Simulated assay, not measured.
Amino acid sequence: MGTRTVLDGAEVSRALTRISHEIIEANKGVAGLVLVGIPTRGSLLARRISDIISRIEGAEVPVGSLDVTMYRDDLAHHPTRAPQPTSMPAAGIDGATVVLVDDVLYSGRTVRAALDALNDHGRPRAVRLAALIDRGHRELPIRADYIGKNLPSSKHERISVRLAEIDGEDAVTIGDGPGAAALGEGAV
């Protein structure tokens, strides 16, 4: 099958703009809203969504970054990576509506780990989930509230999210690959 592009740069931008509008609408504005990205690409996407919302609403949305490496329940099954820095907005997350942002939603285990990690930083009023790609194959009862693209795939396929800040371009590709056996940054 090879590799094919399922979202190009313009489509990634449109998906993030749509997610941003959906977040604003669901939250009835930006009051009490905090975006928290899951490193590495989720953190970059959270920053982009914050920038889009700020342009639309004229108010800045606080952004944090939440490393979940040590909260994962599947460390023995997947290669580990060095933990990334965690940072929360100065005002914290207590009483806020937190939108967790990740690049690809797959088994749901990263999100479960993020929920555990979030508890160490405060008690939000509500937690929502935004994912650029939802590829299915959930192992836990978790679903995204905001999705850029549903991309049904087989477990042996590899989804790669490329972002300009790291990879020099914005694109999402799918192709034959080790799939779940090679979970890593930007590729699941």
Rank of each mutant, 00 (worst) to 15 (best):
I19R: 08
R18S: 15
V6T: 11
E169P: 00
R18I: 15
L44E: 13
D170H: 10
A76M: 10
E185I: 01
G168L: 10
P83A: 13
E139L: 15
T3R: 15
P178R: 14
V127K: 06
S107E: 03
E60D: 08
I147R: 13
A117G: 05
A130M: 11
D167E: 11
D176H: 15
G175R: 14
A114Q: 03
D170W: 02
R18E: 15
D8W: 05
A114I: 02
A113N: 02
L115P: 08
V104G: 11
V36D: 11
E11R: 12
T110P: 05
S20V: 07
V101A: 03
D167P: 07
A182V: 02
V127S: 06
L7T: 03
G42D: 13
H77Q: 08
I93W: 07
L129F: 11
R48N: 05
L140G: 06
G122F: 03
I19C: 06
S54R: 07
L163W: 01
T69Y: 04
S153R: 06
T3Y: 05
V161R: 01
A131R: 10
A91Q: 15
V98P: 05
T110A: 09
A59H: 13
D176R: 15
I142Y: 13
L66F: 00
D8E: 05
G168H: 11
E57T: 14
A164W: 00
L66I: 02
G175C: 14
P85S: 08
R47L: 03
P62W: 09
V68M: 03
P152N: 12
S154G: 06
L35Q: 12
D120E: 13
S160R: 03
V30F: 06
M1K: 12
A82V: 06
L115T: 04
A26V: 09
S13V: 02
K155N: 01
P79C: 06
R125A: 14
T110F: 04
S54P: 01
V68C: 02
V30M: 07
I174W: 04
I166C: 00
D103S: 05
L163T: 02
R158T: 13
Q84M: 00
I24A: 09
L45D: 11
R125C: 04
V12C: 14
R14Q: 07
G42L: 14
T110E: 02
A144V: 07
L66G: 00
R47M: 03
I174H: 03
G95L: 05
D67M: 01
L129A: 11
I23H: 06
A96P: 01
A182I: 00
H137Q: 10
H156W: 11
V104T: 14
R125W: 04
E157R: 08
P89S: 09
V172D: 04
L35T: 09
G168W: 09
I38K: 14
D145R: 07
R41Y: 13
T80R: 14
A31I: 07
V188W: 13
S54Q: 09
R109G: 00
D94L: 04
A76R: 09
L151H: 10
V34Q: 06
A96G: 02
R14K: 12
A59Q: 14
D116L: 05
V188Y: 12
S50L: 02
E22F: 06
H156I: 12
S43N: 08
R47E: 08
